[in-house]
Amino acid sequence: MELIERGEGEMNGVGNVFFWIITFFVLFVIVAPLAWIYLTAFKAPNDIFATEAKKLIFFQPTTENFHRLFREFPFWDNFLNTVIISVSSTVVVLVIASLAAYSFARWNTGKGHLLFNTISTRMFPGVVAAIPFFVMYRNLGLLDTRFGLTLLHIYFNVSFATFLLYGFFKEIPEELEQAAMIDGYSRADIFRRVVLPLVRPGIAVTAVFCLVWSWNEFLFSFLFTRMAARPVTVLISSFWGSIEVQYGPMAAGAAIAILPTLLVSWFMQRYIIRGLTFGAVKG
């Protein structure tokens, strides 16, 4: 009966069966579509457009889609762009956001309004912001460069990263810092030697989120790149012709592109869940 109080306690036989039926159902709903990507990636066009249910699972596998993807499209170049852009933007975001989050958490700088303004930057419709950026980027020669897109991803991620880190910085007891001050540490030293080591888990969480968000970002990546700096999500979105959709290479590309994020969610699950609560629950 404690099931609905705190979701804990012993389960009887019926409860157990009920528990596992629901759990398996939910897992099926989650995993089936993703499994379908991987199945489709190994299908020939005829099997992709088959109208029998059994062909969903039973078919003659082929690696043709991957061959086409690698041969006819710059898949690995684009993949490399994604890696470079997401890693470099994450590093910069972490620096900027941890400084700012510390300030917000320790001194409540700007009395909450500033923190809110930071977050509200993400409420501006990106599509409209894109046009002034496009003109600015043209003048600066930043169009279709990794550096230019990295800058945009920094802007894109920095506000939520700040907010995420804010929760972690808030947890550090002020007494620790006061003690350090008595020991003669300067403010900068306290930040570097006392505070930063303590929020390392928070930084790890934030890094994961920024990496994933940047990895998955589409709109800016699509508008601000052509060939040289194009990330992999844009390539995958492009398999849509006027009278045909090439699902084979699309699925093959997606299968590879989502692999790192799947691995991250598998191995970093504890950290991710910790981050999702935005510091409201102590880990």
Binding site: L143, F222, R226, S238
Partner: peptide, 23 residues
């Protein structure tokens, strides 16, 4: 040759033409 989804060819080209990038 850059390849994109057919519904977005217009947007991609138009923004470059309008902004005069000459790309």
């Amino acid at each position: 040759i850059e390849r994109v989804a057919s519904p977005v060819v217009y947007s991609k080209e138009n923004v470059e033409l309008m902004a005069g990038t000459g790309y």
